[in-house]
Nucleic acid binder design. Sequence first.
DNA 1: CCTATTTGACCTAA
DNA 2: TTAGGTCAAATAGG
Length: 265
Amino acid sequence: MDDRKVLEELVKGREFANQLRQVMINGKDNDSPFVRSLAKNVLRSFTNTLFLLDKYPSYEVSPSTKSEDSQESCKSFNSKNKRGCYKRKRNTQEREEVSQTPKLDGHQWRKYGQKEILNAKYSRNYYRCTHKYDQNCQAIKQVQRIQEDPPLYKTTYLGHHTCNDFLNSAIILDSNNDPSDTSILLSFNNTFPTPTKQECPFLSSFPSPSSGKKEEVIPSSSPPETSLDDSSRHNNVTLPPPDFWDVMFDSVDLDDVNLLLDCDD
DNA sequence: CCTATTTGACCTAA
DNA sequence: TTAGGTCAAATAGG
């Protein structure tokens, strides 16, 4: 790995991101070619960096994973039908990610708990897949703020989704209306169903799925007092939130990286 | 009325 | 004994 190149890419990415930020602060032409070009540059810089780091595509902090027996914390009704009677999850698939905002990972999550953690400044939030019951999806995640400024969140995924409820990220991108970004669109070999605006404030112009039940989005729907961070509530803008790009990389294939790397302006 | 979130209680693993 | 994970009643919000 070439450390110097990595550094270069990071510096470039930072510069582009800074420019983008300035443009956004100035408001107005959030959808100008210049902004799109900047966004693309930021994207490419970080993509290159990740590639150089050989961490692509998942840049996991600790890809610690155990066997696949995915023991759901099963209720054990041993004596009585006691509430909270369960075995703690063990040996589940686990991976951690750190991002500047709670992750938009394309899945619908429902919060089921919050806990103060010893020696941690911020409480940990527990989410399960919305489709835990209707599709028996066992995925859960824990989100914890780990840093104040800049805000940093650690998301720990446990188990994996067996549900069929991805958001159509390609359409999210498409909603950005940049035809030149088709290389990115190609990155998604998804079989996603109808897009929803859940977890996608900037998707609000899209209709909700006609059949699906209404599901609120996390964490932006959390009230200020208990939410992880109010920055997540500021995502209700025309541009995607910062971790918008994370979403893109979440489901991109290594082969597709070349497409991204090759894309020019 | 229905669904999601909050939050204290409850439970297990360490 | 305690920290952390989950449950579920109460509450909020559409």
